[in-house]
Simulated scan of single mutants.
Amino acid sequence: MKKYLIFIFCFVLLYIVFQILSGWLLTALYTPDISSISNIASQEVVSGQASIISFFATLLVATLAYFLSQKIFTTSKK
């Protein structure tokens, strides 16, 4: 049970860090569409689409959390 709790803690921590860093990067690299400025009367909100990349990113974070939790668990036994 201890291994599972360490894994969940590491996974949640890495996932939150990943979300914050990716949000920061996307915000920093955002360039507004200049052509939409002339059409100010339109109040349309466009949201992003889900992609397979987020799935693989989540798998990567889970894998990192697993190996990190294994390292923490094995070093605590010494």
Rank of each mutant, 00 (worst) to 15 (best):
S69I: 00
Q19S: 15
I53M: 10
S35P: 06
Y66Q: 02
I37F: 12
S36Y: 12
V61F: 03
T31D: 05
P32D: 04
Y15N: 15
K3Q: 11
T75W: 15
S47G: 10
F11H: 06
K3T: 06
I16N: 01
I52E: 02
S76R: 13
Q49F: 15
K2V: 10
Y4C: 03
A65Y: 00
V61C: 00
F9E: 05
K2L: 07
A62C: 02
F7Y: 04
K2S: 08
K3D: 06
Y30C: 03
V12T: 11
S47P: 09
S36A: 09
Y15T: 14
M1S: 14
I34G: 05
T27G: 12
G48I: 04
L21G: 07
L59K: 02
Q43P: 11
F55E: 03
Y66A: 01
L68D: 03
F73S: 06
K71S: 08
A65I: 00
I37E: 10
S54M: 13
F67Y: 13
I53T: 10
T75F: 14
M1R: 14
F67T: 00
F56I: 03
T58N: 09
I8W: 03
S35I: 13
L29Y: 09
T31N: 08
V61R: 02
K77W: 03
S35H: 13
S38F: 11
V46W: 08
E44V: 11
N39H: 09
I72N: 01
S42N: 13
V46N: 08
F67K: 02
T75N: 12
Y4G: 01
E44M: 09
I52Y: 11
F18G: 07
S69R: 00
A65E: 00
L14D: 01
S69Q: 00
A41E: 15
A41M: 13
I52D: 02
I53E: 06
I72T: 01
I34F: 15
Q19C: 12
T31L: 14
A62S: 04
L5V: 08
T74Y: 14
S54Q: 14
T74D: 09
Y4Q: 04
V17D: 01
I16V: 11
G48D: 07
T31V: 13
I52C: 03
G48R: 04
A62E: 00
